[in-house]
Design a protein around this nucleic acid. Structure first.
Length: 661
RNA sequence: GGGCGCGUAGCUCAGUUGGAUAGAGCAUCGGCCUUCUAAGCCGAGGGUCGCAGGUUCGAGUCCUGCCGCGCCUACCA
């Protein structure tokens, strides 16, 4: 609703400017800094002043006189040096909200592929992976809220170095056969992903101490690629079991997937050979015949890096900018090469190549996660891939590689496609030195002086996702139990879990993508202030009002009959009421803005602000004690409206609204 | 060396594609529970927006230079 009004205003102003001044300038619509200024504002007169060489205030005055009769808008006023402040028709606005007019996309949905999570299936998920999954899943939900057709993919690198290292560790350090590893997976007393976490740290340490052991890695990688023997078998077991662990962990956080494409199938279906032919044909890569990259197929660096002009001397010195190897001299393809092939598939550009699919698991929501298999697709398989746009949620450290992939698309002549290939990057989650101390991790003198230390799977340095979630649940459960002793344990546990997930998802979302999260237990475990539970608590308060009202024996009024446009208009003269309703009605507008800005943190911030507005309102107006019957009916409807809207906001963030708290 | 990013209150962070008086949370101090749940509300103190120039009606935001910090710059992924 708000989104539609903003759009209407923008169009009207732009049309008028075009007609009267014959100027095409972008009309910026913003929220006024202070609410007394109205609901919307535009500084367009300033931009126009520059264009027309006239005083902004003069232009603004002319505009005010002409911009009348825009439906839904009560007035436009001149303010300051030339701002146009816009006030909405409160009654009409409320009327449309009450009638349940909601956002409806008036365009055909686009197919959007969002890849996120992508954890190497060789160890438990940690807090860094959580940021990825929460950002990715929230992006998925935001796009769906705007009506897009979204496919959530979680890419499984089950044939890479990381899996190989753990496989080698099982074989060489643990002396386990494939059968023994299966026993371990089936042992209910062992958390397999945690076991692998420790094992991975162990073998990484072992490689450091005895570099000769690195031969194990090569041997294992070879076995996995050839898909033969006990090592390959262990590889399948490890990757398969750990993926299940990750899926369980993510499901605890309300994260669901549509498709798990696996690297083994990208190899098996020979996506690469098709991509290789395309790249060679388009001369995007060439066979290096000299220097240290002799024998490799490489992509020249100028294709994916913008470099300044340099004189010969500098060129001589520059040993850092080199071509990117796509195919190694031994003929094997690098990760980037595979990713180019996979990206081509995502856009439906790998003709004649597709995965085969089977069901991986189904969720209680009804969604089914599929995964790629080497042969024999399930006949029920939906259509995967062929995206209009692709978002890769990958941390910023991989920007370089994502640039190479994008350059690959451009070189192949897919310019438009490359524009719709988005690296949705974000900064890492690091540990504060204090956090390391709490975990009992010894740091070097140098690291202790840093603001934060990078999480490292190789070093086993990190906070596991499930551990953090367990801590949050335990903490929330204590609080819930102290407040609701009489509730059955299962119920309390369920609420505690909702609160824990709310706290965790909100924590991961409230930072903008470019901010390094220096993880701190105290901050992450907080349920007060700008947190998920604060927002959840506001919904519980609203729910309590409605519940208490019904407990008095009164039945809910017939809002349709009682809340006439005149009643709405008169009640909304109260500024508090108007601000709350306005604030709660902006979800789609905020989602659209968050997507435009590529910044889910804006949505989190909005949720907090709406909750804050409600809490303020809650303290000032006692609804159940309201004596004016008309006002009481109105406030009950407002409460209901607020509850519905804030619940919807939380849902876009993947956070549930608990029944009680 | 080059690329990307960051630097805003004691701490952690926002700052709406250049706009109106720079905002939150935490922490500190002071109020508010016989009230629809205090996981809350109200109030106070706290700022050279890293530094120096520039662009303009207007700069925390854009440009240049410098300082500090982080990441990337593999025939690993």
């Amino acid at each position: 609703m708000f989104l539609a009004l903003e759009e209407r205003l923008r169009t009207a102003v732009a049309a008028h400017i075009k007609q009267r001044y014959n100027v095409d300038i972008p009309v910026v619509i913003e929220l006024p800094r202070q609410q007394e200024f109205g609901e919307l504002a535009t500084p367009v007169s300033f931009a126009l002043a520059k264009e027309l060489k006239q005083a902004p205030r003069q232009i603004a005055m002319e505009l005010v006189g002409k911009l009348t009769d825009i439906p839904g808008i009560a007035s436009i006023e001149l303010a300051g040096g030339g701002f146009l402040n816009v006030r909405l028709e409160r009654g009409a606005y409320a009327q449309s909200l009450r009638a349940g007019e909601s956002y409806a996309a008036d365009r055909t949905p686009k197919k959007i592929i969002i890849e996120h999570t992508n954890i190497n299936p060789n160890k438990a998920a940690h807090i860094g992976h959580l940021r990825n999954a929460v950002l990715g899943d929230t992006l998925v939900r935001m796009m769906r809220a705007l009506g897009e057709n979204v496919e959530a993919q979680n890419y499984i690198d089950n044939t890479g170095v990381q899996v190989a290292d753990v496989v080698a560790a099982f074989h060489h350090l643990e002396k386990m056969t494939a059968a023994k590893v299966v026993e371990l997976v089936d042992n209910p007393d062992v958390r397999f992903d945690y076991y692998c976490w420790d094992l991975y740290a162990r073998i990484s340490q072992h490689y450091q101490n005895e570099p000769d052991a690195l031969a194990w890695r090569a041997e294992t990688l070879h076995a996995i690629e050839a898909d033969q023997g006990d090592l390959a078998e262990i590889g399948r077991i490890v990757a398969g079991a750990v993926v299940h662990c990750h899926m369980d962990t993510m499901y605890r956080l309300n994260v669901e997937y549509d498709l798990l494409p696996r690297e083994s199938e990208i190899l098996h279906m020979q996506f690469w050979s098709a991509a290789f032919e395309m790249l060679k044909e388009r001369k995007a890569i060439y066979l290096e015949d000299k220097g240290k990259l002799k024998g490799c197929w490489v992509m020249p660096s100028d294709l994916f890096q913008e470099t300044k002009q340099k004189d010969a001397e500098e060129e001589e010195e520059s040993k850092f900018e080199e071509s990117k190897v796509i195919v190694r001299s031994n003929g094997t393809v690098t990760y980037v090469g595979k990713d180019i092939a996979y990206t081509l598939w995502k856009f439906g550009l790998l003709e004649g190549r597709d995965f085969h699919y089977k069901q991986f698991r189904s969720y209680p929501s009804g969604r089914v996660a599929w995964y790629s298999v080497p042969d024999a697709s399930d006949p029920q398989t939906p259509r995967f891939g062929k995206g209009d746009a692709v978002f890769n949620v990958i941390d910023t450290r991989q920007s370089y590689l994502q640039d190479v992939v994008k350059a690959g698309l451009q070189c192949l002549g897919f310019k438009k496609v490359a524009e719709n290939f988005v690296h949705f990057s974000y900064e890492m989650v690091a540990l504060t030195p204090r956090c390391c101390a709490e975990l009992g991790i010894e740091l070097s003198e140098e690291d202790r002086r840093r603001p934060y230390v990078e999480v490292s799977g190789r070093k086993g340095l990190g906070v596991k996702a499930d551990d953090l979630l367990d801590m949050l649940i335990a903490s929330a459960l204590q609080e819930v139990s102290s407040r609701h002793e009489q509730l059955p344990y299962d119920e309390r546990k369920k609420i505690a879990t909702q609160i824990a997930v709310g706290a965790l998802r909100y924590f991961m979302l409230r930072f903008t993508r470019t901010t390094v999260i220096a993880f701190d237990f105290q901050e992450a475990l907080s349920f007060e202030g700008e947190t998920g539970p604060y927002v959840q608590y506001a919904t519980v308060r609203a729910r309590n009002i409605l519940r208490k009202f019904e407990a008095t024996g009164e039945s809910m009024p017939d809002f349709d009959a009682e809340l006439t446009p005149a009643v709405l208009a008169s009640q909304l003269e109260n500024e508090d009421f108007w601000q709350l309703m306005l604030s709660a009605s902006r979800l789609h507008w905020v989602v659209q803005r968050s997507i435009n800005a590529a910044e889910p943190a804006q949505l989190a911030r909005y949720a907090f602000q709406v909750a804050q507005t409600f809490n303020n309102f809650y303290h000032q107006h006692h609804i159940l004690k309201e004596e004016d019957p008309e006002r009481k009916v109105f406030l009950l409807w407002m409460t209901q409206f607020f509850l519905k809207e804030l619940t919807a906001v939380l849902d876009v963030m993947g956070i549930e609204a608990p029944r009680v708290m």
